[in-house]
Simulated assay, not measured.
Amino acid sequence: MTSPAAPGSLDADLQLALLLADAADAQTLPRFDAADLDVSRKADRTHVTDADLAAERAVRALLAEHRPHDSVFGEEYGADAPTSRRWIIDPIDGTANFLRGVPAWGTMIGLQIDGVVRLGVVSSPAWGRRWWGAEGLGAFTSTPDGASRAIRVSGVDSLDDASVSFQSIAQWDRAGHLDALLALTRRVWRDRAYGDIWSYMLLAEGRLEMVGEFDVKEYDLAAAAAIVTAAGGRFSSFEGEPSIATGSSVATNGVLHNAILDVLHGAPPVTS
């Protein structure tokens, strides 16, 4: 493994984040759809597999070696004492898919500096796909031939032409906002629940205009928020706050962000 550059620029941190994703993929992909996959339940009744644990351990080990002064917040092993630079890790986002043999899962790696997520990597090895981006550096995805290409959110500027992903009806219902979701679906061209990390990456690639969900933690959102914003989009909570720590998210192509929030919060449609 090539040794990553020392900290000091987002480019160097992004190089490291891509190596962290390699290390996670080496743990997760061999265990995907494995007959002897070890699955248990955590205190919150969500599932965890041996692959989740091994992937986070591998990422933490590399960070301890290459960024010993940075803190880490991971889904499986919790949070270190906070520092100005904090790596936020979801070793397998979409564990329910992973344990059922559904390939819509991946590792999410984000770097938060002074409270703002500045870069992110999402790796989906079962699909042979990866996405990454950083503030000021743009956003990119891998191609089938192993090359990379820049990605950008769409320029769609009318709700009538917008395609949105709501992740899960149950999420919106439990949060008490099912009526808001239905109001939005009546205003847009198309609605689907693509689910989990894929929705955000479709948004970053310009294939959707909005993703929204509830009951989410920082590790569910950090990498996605960084990539979406690096691709020119906008990320906020349901209430419009620029934060990944509120338990909700609304990510858009930026152009439609305010219009979507207005619909979700019951503002009457603007007529010409």
Rank of each mutant, 00 (worst) to 15 (best):
A223S: 11
T49R: 10
A104Q: 06
D13C: 09
Q112P: 02
T46G: 05
F166W: 10
V255E: 08
D215G: 00
W127V: 00
L111E: 09
H265S: 06
T246H: 14
R129N: 02
R130N: 02
A230G: 10
D215Q: 03
A12L: 14
S9A: 14
A193W: 00
T83D: 13
W198N: 06
S142G: 13
W198L: 09
D25S: 13
S237I: 09
R67M: 04
I88N: 05
A204H: 01
W87V: 15
A180N: 11
M108I: 02
A170P: 01
L261C: 03
D90W: 08
R130H: 06
P269I: 13
D33Y: 10
T141C: 13
G94V: 03
V153Y: 02
T28H: 11
H47M: 13
A96T: 15
A162D: 07
A259R: 15
N253A: 05
R190E: 04
T46M: 07
G176K: 12
T143I: 11
D220R: 01
H66F: 09
L99W: 04
S3Q: 13
A79C: 12
L203F: 05
S163N: 07
R86W: 01
L159K: 04
S165K: 12
A54E: 10
R100Q: 15
G74D: 11
T141Y: 03
P30I: 06
K217A: 12
V59C: 08
A81Q: 15
V255Q: 03
A267N: 04
L63D: 13
P30D: 12
N258L: 08
R45W: 03
G115V: 14
S142I: 13
L53C: 06
L19C: 01
L14M: 12
D215P: 00
A35T: 15
R41I: 00
R41T: 00
A23Y: 08
G138D: 12
L221H: 03
P125M: 14
R152S: 11
D50H: 04
A204I: 14
I260W: 10
A267V: 03
G94H: 12
L119A: 08
R100N: 15
R31A: 08
F32C: 07
R67N: 07
G8Q: 08
P91M: 01
A230K: 05
D36R: 09
L53R: 15
W189V: 13
E75D: 09
E241S: 03
R85I: 09
A180H: 11
N258S: 12
L184V: 06
A34T: 03
V72E: 08
L159Y: 13
P144W: 14
A134Y: 06
E218G: 03
Q112I: 03
A150M: 08
D80R: 14
A226L: 11
S148D: 00
D173V: 02
A43D: 14
A23P: 06
A134S: 07
T185K: 10
W105I: 03
L16M: 04
G94Q: 08
P268S: 11
P68G: 05
L221G: 01
A54C: 05
E135P: 08
G195Q: 07
A251N: 05
